[in-house]
């Protein structure tokens, strides 16, 4: 009898996760693939259409416009949230009772459900009765997010920064807390300037958590739905109709399951490619 050197029984412990993922990810995704090549007439009646919907989506101006809005939104919030979050984390106290106070304050926005955030900012920004809207208007700034695209964009971006910068702060702070004191002592002995400490000790040590923060914020903002839907409903006109809002309009508003399936898959491929590219390029140096 041969003695096996490795024990493979541990794979059974992973089985529940495999079943769970199959039910909440693999089967729905397979269904989307099936829908994307067919025309549906309700009551589970489907007709084969081949790649017609994909072709339609690729040439659709509506899809291109909502994709552009989505890319612009994600770029803007990443450009604001990542540096802003790092700056806040760097200026937070590292020791003493204030650490907990700061952390709790930072975590508060993250605890609020998405639709509540949308509703809060909706009322907060109303031009006639909302605190923000009324204040801006009384300063002489023509602000009305229900009518003007620029106001709507300003509100949506401000809302996202308010809601999600905390996540970057918490992750960056966790990265900072893991830096041993010895690094700071060494920097002090060498007479390093505060900027040099940030540049050569703190930022490199935060690199991994910042990659995670970037990926989380990229994915979340690229898939954002609830907050802008509650705040502006994609308006005024189509000014803040992001890809996800447009997708729901196609899938549930018009009940076009075929085109919605095609949009979903292209959407999914874009997210997959971006995450893979970003992860691979940032981890390239680490692996060598």
């Amino acid at each position: 009898m041969t003695v096996k050197l490795t024990n493979q029984k541990a794979w059974f412990l992973v089985a529940p996760v495999v079943v769970l993922v199959a039910f909440n990810a693999v089967i729905p995704l397979m269904t989307v693939v099936n829908y994307s090549v067919q025309e549906s007439f309700g009551n589970n009646i489907f007709f084969w259409e081949g790649v017609k919907w994909f072709e339609e989506v690729l040439h659709s101006e509506r899809f291109a416009a909502s994709l552009m809005r989505q890319i612009f939104f994600t770029s803007v919030i990443l450009l604001i949230e990542i540096p802003f979050g790092v700056a806040i984390a760097l200026s937070m106290p590292r020791k003493g009772p204030w650490v907990s106070v700061c952390l709790v304050l930072m975590a508060l926005p993250l605890l609020i459900p998405w639709n509540v955030v949308g509703a809060m900012w909706n009322i907060f920004s109303l031009p006639d009765i909302g605190l923000l809207g009324k204040a801006l208007n009384s300063l002489g700034i023509g602000y009305d997010y229900t009518q003007e695209p620029i106001s709507a964009w300003f509100t949506v971006i401000l809302m996202d920064v308010w809601h999600w910068t905390s996540l970057v702060v918490l992750l960056a702070f966790a990265g900072l807390s893991s830096i041993p004191e010895a690094y700071y002592h060494a920097a002090k002995i060498d007479g390093a300037s505060p900027w040099a400490i940030v540049r050569y000790i703190e930022l490199p040590k935060m690199k991994r958590v910042l990659i995670i923060a970037f990926l989380l914020r990229f994915m979340d903002s690229f898939m954002i739905y609830t907050e802008p839907f509650v705040l502006t409903g994609g308006g005024p006109g189509n000014a803040t109709t992001f890809l996800s809002i447009d997708l729901v309009k196609v899938a549930l508003g018009q009940f076009d399951l075929g085109p919605a399936g095609a949009i979903s898959l292209i959407y999914f491929l874009i997210i997959l490619l971006t995450c893979w590219l970003f992860y691979t390029l940032t981890m390239k140096d680490e692996a060598q």
Partner: peptide, 15 residues
């Protein structure tokens, strides 16, 4: 499984 609307080409893709 009719709600999943399987077709042979998509099944072939997953196979």
């Amino acid at each position: 499984l009719s709600w999943m609307a399987w077709t042979w080409p998509t099944a072939g893709f997953f196979i």
